[in-house]
């Protein structure tokens, strides 16, 4: 079963002299249940790749099939629906909504999915328990440590049971102990069958993945095949 299938992907920003060719023909396949790390120097195009994988940006050329659906031609509103149903994001800077409890933060994607409140609460609590932070459900982000915030963010990414969990440098803002905690959560999720794609520049973080994809100058230079 294929989660991601990318062929001949190009991304060009700007026109004329300010034209930037960020991706120059990327082919990549990720199977369901895989744990993939994307590595590369800054400016290599890995962030662009992540934005396209996350349906935050549309490719200039090429095909992107997510869960068997061709999404490269989707409109903005179709993409937001797709993000809600199929993708869970984990950001480097956690990006929890301020002054809002952990539980409400985790509930948020389900609010936009239009789920009833009672059902939402149950799902959110279950997700918080899964990442081991159920006892902090009523705390706001400022009352949580960085590691705790990131675990809440992971719970938020999981709560919709997405096809793909996309993590952008999830340990970039954490100390080593918290990093280890968060990576352990990802390992457990993968063992439970979640598909994870993680961007990182740290080799020891990438080592948690089954496979490392290296991006250089807008092309994939290693790890194309599983």
């Amino acid at each position: 079963m294929t989660a991601i299938e990318i062929t001949g992907l190009h991304k060009v920003y700007g026109t004329g002299s300010t034209r930037v060719h960020a991706l120059r023909g990327v082919d990549m396949t990720v199977q369901k249940g895989e744990y993939v790390a994307i590595v590369g120097a800054s400016g290599s195009g890995k962030s662009t790749l992540l934005n396209i994988l996350g349906c935050l940006d549309a490719p200039s050329e090429g095909s992107y099939r997510l869960d068997g659906i061709e999404v490269s031609t989707f409109t903005e509103s179709e993409l937001s629906l797709l993000r809600n149903r199929k993708i869970g994001f984990v950001f480097q800077s956690f990006n929890l909504i301020p002054r809002t409890t952990a539980l409400s933060n985790v509930e948020l994607p389900l609010v936009y999915a239009g789920m009833a409140r009672k059902h939402r609460r149950e799902r959110a609590r279950a997700a918080l328990d899964l990442v081991g932070i159920g006892h902090r459900a009523d705390h706001t982000p400022t009352q949580l440590s960085g590691g705790e915030q990131q675990r809440v963010a992971i719970a938020r990414a999981l709560v919709t049971a997405p096809t793909l969990v996309l993590a952008d440098e999830p340990t970039g803002n954490l100390d080593s102990r918290n990093s280890a905690d968060v990576l352990a959560v990802f390992d457990r999720l993968n063992t439970a069958g979640r598909t994870i794609v993680m961007i990182t520049h740290e080799a020891d973080v990438a080592a948690h993945a089954h496979r490392t994809v290296r991006v250089h100058d807008g092309r994939i230079v290693a790890g194309v095949l599983a």
Binding site: G54, L56, S77, S80, R83, F89, I97, L108, Y112
Partner: peptide, 8 residues
């Protein structure tokens, strides 16, 4: 963030 989480 809200948009990334799928807010229309």
């Amino acid at each position: 963030v809200r948009k990334a989480l799928g807010a229309p």
